[in-house]
Amino acid sequence: MLEIIGLTRRFGTVTAVDAVTLAIPHGQMMGIIGRSGAGKSTLLRLINRLVEPSEGRIVFEGRDVSALRGRALRDWRTDCAMIFQQFNLVQRLDVLTNVLVGRLNHRGTLTSLLKLFTAEERAAAIRTLDRFDLAEAALQRADTLSGGQQQRVAIARALMQEPRLILADEPIASLDPRNGKVVMDALRRINREDGLTVLCNLHTLDTARQYCDRIVGMRAGRVVFDGIPAQLTAPIVRDIYGMGEEDLDRAETVTGTGLEAASRPRIAA
């Protein structure tokens, strides 16, 4: 169970996330929808602690993780793997190393720096890649892959962390519909097969309805809707987006992550 209690983040005078309170049971697949700048991306980054909260608490299985430092913080980040809109792979490294990067917090610093990954770790990376039909590409450079393949490599990297939950920040916003479907299917698979909790920011309502057990709507940093897909009626959509669903399809401005620049990652020393 992940509990978010009164979580708030301010950037200067802007309140990006405003007193959000949510309880997410284990194994749920939850979608977060809302306009660009509604605070969806900041919310996920707050949970992973890439962004520090201004107020409020994050409690995971009874343990407060909102003030962890150093080693404990890194362990928590390993527990909640992130998936990014732009995949965030190291383009010049091969796919295998990109996946093994997920193991870094499980091993000694020196052996990591020398890239001395064990045979077991390499085999596990291949096995994970194989789940997404990418084992054959293991020794290719990441920048030789298509967007959809890169995002699946990113999911494999996330799984290598052996996480408890997955935070996916607009995972398909940079992909064409076909690749988007492949990636969403992969996320649903790890939710069903591995029993991982998945929190997923989405910009298309159809995707959210199709894949998620539960949908949370955000507007101006606040949660304005929380329910199952069937409860997401036209008036509620209008309330979340400030426009109807038919206008929404035309106004393709709802993607993007407006606060990305403001929320530089803090690297745990």
Binding site: L50, R74, M82, V101, P265, A269
Partner: peptide
């Protein structure tokens, strides 16, 4: 900055983030 963010989010330490 994107791979740097990804490694930080995966729980890698500073020196590992620089390295990879």
């Amino acid at each position: 900055p994107r791979p740097i963010e990804a490694l930080a989010a995966a729980g890698a330490g500073w020196s590992e983030t620089m390295r990879f």
